[in-house]
């Protein structure tokens, strides 16, 4: 069974650290201001905030799709600002991302989509075929692995996007509104999936404005409002 595992790198500090990070898109006012936090290895955290608060922006900073306009971001102890370009792909492979709009590749089957990170890491099909099949079965897509994304339901796409994000056993899993397109029943199923992954060692950060889900999870919450991170709180256990 493919469970997410820990990367063997011998770094003991926080998986991700933000210190007074600011981000400005073009000339508008800062979208993020003085954002500081640590994601401890093995932690499970929710990132909440109204639509437009900057949740997606913050996640993008972590998976290096954006560079901060000021402040310091370290991933696994490395300052991302001084990271040479050649080192970025390897770092990205340690971070699994469930994009808000899934971003599945339409021309690839569910199986090939899920296997993508392993393929990009240079693994041969023979080496990952069984693992990917098991993972897809685990997220409930065992019967749909040859389907094309266009034929999948919203919930199936969501779970496929999750499978792709975790297939490479990343150290950190980022999920952007992973329950935004599914009913409450499916949202709870997906939440249980994340909790299971976290139990196996993956650091999880989920951006969500689904207050019910956050409350039910009983997990710590970071709240974004007007570009600033409010004091940490904890969702009430279900």
């Amino acid at each position: 069974m493919v469970g997410p595992g820990r990367n063997p790198a011998r770094y003991e500090g926080p998986a991700v650290r933000f210190e007074n990070v600011g981000l400005r898109y073009g000339r508008q006012t800062e979208t993020l201001r003085d954002v500081s936090f640590d994601l401890e290895p093995g932690s499970f955290t929710f990132l909440t905030g109204a639509s437009g608060a900057g949740k997606t922006t913050l996640l993008k900073l972590i998976y290096l799709a954006l560079r901060p306009t000021r402040g310091l971001i370290t991933a696994f102890g490395q300052d991302v600002a001084t990271l040479p370009r050649e080192a970025v792909p390897a770092l990205r492979r340690r971070v699994g991302v469930v994009f808000q709009e899934f971003r599945l590749l339409d021309h690839l089957s569910a199986f090939d989509n899920a296997a993508l990170p392993l393929r990009l890491a240079g693994l041969k099909p023979k080496a990952y075929r069984d693992d990917v099949g098991e993972l897809l079965a685990w997220v409930g897509l065992g019967e749909r692995m040859h389907a094309m994304p266009a034929t999948l339901s919203g919930g199936e796409k969501q779970r496929l996007a999750i499978a792709r994000a975790v297939v490479g056993k990343p150290d950190v899993l980022l999920a952007d509104e992973p329950t935004g397109n599914v009913d409450h029943e499916m949202a709870l199923r997906i939440l249980r999936l994340f909790v299971e992954l976290n139990r196996l060692g993956t650091t999880v950060l989920i951006a969500s404005h689904d207050q019910d889900l956050v409350r039910q999870s009983g997990k710590p919450v970071m709240h974004l409002a007007r570009g600033k991170l409010g004091p940490a709180s904890v969702g009430r256990a279900a």
Partner: peptide, 16 residues
């Protein structure tokens, strides 16, 4: 672009 960007963000090397 979408395909290239997803591959890029999934850890594909530029050369690849």
């Amino acid at each position: 672009r979408e395909v290239v960007e997803v591959l890029h963000l999934s850890g594909a090397e530029d050369a690849m």
